[in-house]
Design a protein around this nucleic acid. Structure first.
Length: 763
DNA sequence: TATATAGTGTTTTTT
DNA sequence: ACACTATATA
């Protein structure tokens, strides 16, 4: 595309175009679901560069997830061409990370700081609780961390927090907050929230650094603005203070992260915060059918205090919203599996056109089981993050220790992995010594000879420190991250040990290690800064949703939260029951704000669907081991009856939709003896769990692709692999569960892999 | 020191 | 139902 070509403007509607062309001063774009806001943002960037001669490096675009950032990056690259790479397109967290990595030494941290995930934070908090001798029954680390996180989101430091304490309990939390920060600092670590907090702190403390970035980012765009919290607001506010060219895009109806500190007032009060702001509404939806949109509008209309807007579309009416209630979650899952299977077989749809959305991660289990038995390829998004898996974290802990031994948590994690005979008592003694001498744990290890009570363990410790020293040497010699990782795996015998275990679980873990190596390799090829620290930092900011690859033909299962920003032809919203969705947490009490947030979540879910939306509910669900009887969600009831199509009407669903409410006792009326069969007819017994594949309960929930009927390549064919590029198929072996394919890659040599994982494409 | 077992508490959503 | 913790035991 020519550098002055503005033809892309022609594909925009009037409002979209106005948003693109309004480049100076604050701008609020209220973009309803599916109204093409990503298109507007990317076009706006192109317009700034082409028409307004803005330099690419003066532009910053912030999105919510890495995935969204990646998508925008791609579109911007395609549209802008040369120079696009100097535009900052990233998440809040990675932007802050990038800034801090350069300047955090001004705040007394080392620039090679590490980032703690939730797990690490909990670990630290446990230590704090022990240190302060708090009763762990009263002071739960989760609860304390939640309070601290809330404080940080409001930019409250420990002192400010303490000043506001009224109860003794709160004062203890303030103490814990302070101690927690000290420990993080000692480990040269930041938690997620700190990334924002410290950046703001940096800007406020070092005005010339702030000015540097203000000059740099003269045009700032923020996506999903409704989900920003106070810290993020401040960050943006500071950055944009000088040039005031701030464009925020959001939809108050899609604000679903209040629990994480998102402040809906940021968007509702934008015009007050940035006087003279122009407001543009995008109300035409290009994504969904009329029916879906109507349902969404109806549901969200039940919320008070929104910015008035009504989505409309020129799309076809499409089928009505489907709703069906089942006796149990198992029947529900069975139905969804069957329905998807059928629609793929008859309707010519492919697996990837389907998504199953639920309120809580715990619900994925049942669906997963049914999908396995129905032989449906699927992928569960969320749950345990790839980088949170044990073996991955172990390897990362090694890399962290090699990078700098400052992170005690990482060192302690791996000091006895593999088993070196260094146990709790030894670790305790070293930790004590380190504390007394105010040195890091790793430093203490090096003078373990002088630590009382170590004795025999000293030799073992030396073995460990020697290993680390050797690996550090290698890192210094310029070995790549991937090579270092492979050395760690080899030197520690980690993979060997797993191989010897020879279980499904251990094999899955080895797969994960390979995956990690592939990621390290990829990093070495694509990253600007290929240092070990850079790798570790990048890795800690990757969310699960980010790794959902296009192209793998699977049904996606995820929470409603993860689904934000995505769209699918066919959506199943499952678990549409009171107490499940809206969650029981949101129902009770006068406070309707939580309920409204649930309703927005429902709105987000509905608007994910392009063509067909099906809602399902169960009358009974196992909750914490106990059966719970549930009535259908009020959100279903908020959709007018005539917009809903009952799939295979049953007496339950008919009654439910006729009367405004099914009396609870009608459902409760099923006596204990009856529990096994909810509803009527010859249904499968409720309590019989499907034959569960025992996989150690670990890996199999993450990523399973069912063996294909056939492969579209044969021995001798040229194939392409996502990471390894092009190669020649040498051998295909039918290993029963899957095909084992041996490929000779042009650049990577011979690799043996499972067909379902490798996703090879014939070229 | 490492492992097995019983007992305990817990769940909403996540960058 | 599950994961985590404390305790007993090899």
């Amino acid at each position: 595309m020519q550098n002055s070509d503005l033809s892309f403007l022609e594909q925009l509607n009037q409002e979209q175009r106005a948003a693109v062309e309004h480049t100076e001063g604050p701008l609020l774009i209220l973009a309803g679901a599916g109204s093409g806001k990503t298109k507007v943002l990317t076009c706006r960037i192109a317009y700034l560069i082409r028409e307004k001669q803005v330099k690419p490096w003066n532009i910053m675009a912030i999105t919510f997830t890495n995935k969204a950032a990646g998508e925008m990056r791609e579109r911007v690259d395609a549209l802008v061409g040369m120079g696009a790479e100097s535009i900052w397109v990233s998440t809040f967290h990675s932007s802050c990370c990038r800034i801090l990595r350069r300047f955090i030494d001004r705040l007394g941290y080392d620039n090679s700081f590490t980032i703690y995930d939730t797990d690490d934070s909990r670990q630290v908090m446990k230590e704090v609780i022990r240190e302060l001798e708090l009763d762990p029954k009263v002071y739960k680390e989760r609860a304390i961390l939640a309070r601290i996180s809330a404080a940080k989101n409001e930019l409250q430091d420990p002192e400010a927090f303490e000043a506001e304490c009224t109860s003794w309990y709160d004062r203890k939390i303030a103490e814990a907050y302070l101690a927690y920060q000290k420990r993080l600092a000692r480990n040269n670590a930041l938690d997620f929230d700190d990334l924002l907090v410290k950046t703001v702190e940096l800007f406020e403390q070092e005005p010339e650094i702030m000015e540097h970035y203000q000059e740099r980012f003269r045009y700032i765009m923020i996506d999903e603005y409704q989900d920003t919290n106070t810290a993020q607001f401040r960050f943006v506010d500071l950055l944009a203070a000088k040039y005031r060219n701030l464009c925020v895009v959001g939809d108050d109806d899609q604000s679903i992260y209040k629990f994480r500190g998102a402040n809906i007032r940021n968007i509702l009060n934008f015009e007050q915060s940035f006087p003279g702001a122009k407001v543009i509404k995008l109300e035409q939806n290009y994504r969904s059918t009329q029916s879906i949109l109507n349902a969404a509008n109806e549901v969200i209309a039940h919320n008070a205090g929104r910015k008035e807007k009504r989505l409309w579309t020129q799309n076809a009416e499409g089928p009505k919203i489907g709703f069906r209630q089942f006796g149990s979650g198992y029947e529900e899952a069975e139905y969804v599996a069957g329905e998807i299977r059928q629609r793929v077989r008859n309707g010519g749809a492919s697996w990837k056109d389907f998504a199953v959305l639920y309120r809580t991660n715990a619900m994925s289990r049942t669906f997963e089981e049914k999908f396995i038995t129905a032989n449906i390829p699927y992928k569960i998004v969320g749950g345990v993050n790839f980088y949170a898996r044990r073996e991955v974290k172990d390897m990362l802990a090694y890399l962290k220790t090699i990078d700098n031994g400052l992170d005690d948590l990482a060192v302690i994690r791996i000091i006895n992995i593999p088993k070196r005979g260094i146990g709790q008592t030894t670790i305790g003694r070293i930790g004590q010594y380190a504390g007394e001498h105010e040195i890091s744990f790793y430093e203490a290890l090096k003078c373990s000879d002088r630590i009382p009570g170590i004795g025999r363990a000293a030799a073992k410790i030396h073995g460990f420190t020697n290993l680390i020293t050797r690996l550090r040497g290698a890192a210094g010699d310029g070995f790549s991250v991937r090579e270092l990782l492979e050395m760690v795996i080899k030197e520690t015998g980690y993979a060997e040990e797993l191989k010897a275990e020879d279980t499904d679980e251990s094999r899955a873990r080895i797969e994960n290690l390979d995956e990690l190596i592939a990621k390290a390799e990829d990093f070495g090829k694509t990253a600007e800064d290929t240092s070990l620290s850079a790798f570790l930092q990048q890795v800690s900011l990757v969310a699960d949703i980010d790794s959902v690859e296009e192209g793998s033909d699977c049904v996606l299962l995820m929470t409603l939260h993860s689904a934000k920003g995505l769209e699918f032809d066919n959506v199943f919203m499952v678990g549409m029951e009171e107490k499940t969705f809206p969650s029981y947490m949101a129902i009770n009490g006068e406070d309707t704000s939580e309920l409204e947030e649930e309703r927005r979540l429902c709105y987000v879910g509905i608007t994910r669907a392009r063509k067909e939306l099906t809602m399902t509910a169960a009358q009974m669900r196992m909750l914490r081991g106990e059966p719970e009887f549930l009535k259908a969600s009020r959100f279903v009831r908020e959709i007018p009856r005539e917009m809903v199509r009952l799939e295979r009407e049953t007496s339950d669903t008919r009654n439910f939709l006729k009367s405004p409410q099914v009396p609870l006792d009608r459902l409760m009326g099923m006596g204990k003896a009856d529990q096994g069969r909810a509803g009527s007819g010859e249904r499968a017994p409720l309590f019989e769990r499907p034959k569960q594949q025992k996989t150690g309960g670990f890996q199999m929930r993450e990523f399973r692709v069912v063996k294909a009927d056939h492969l579209d390549y044969a021995e001798g064919d040229q194939v392409r692999h996502v990471k390894f590029g092009v190669g020649t198929v040498q051998e295909i072996k039918d290993g029963g569960k899957d095909y084992e394919v041996t490929v000779d890659f042009e650049n990577y040599g011979i690799k043996r892999m499972f067909a379902s994982f490798a996703k090879l494409k014939k070229v």
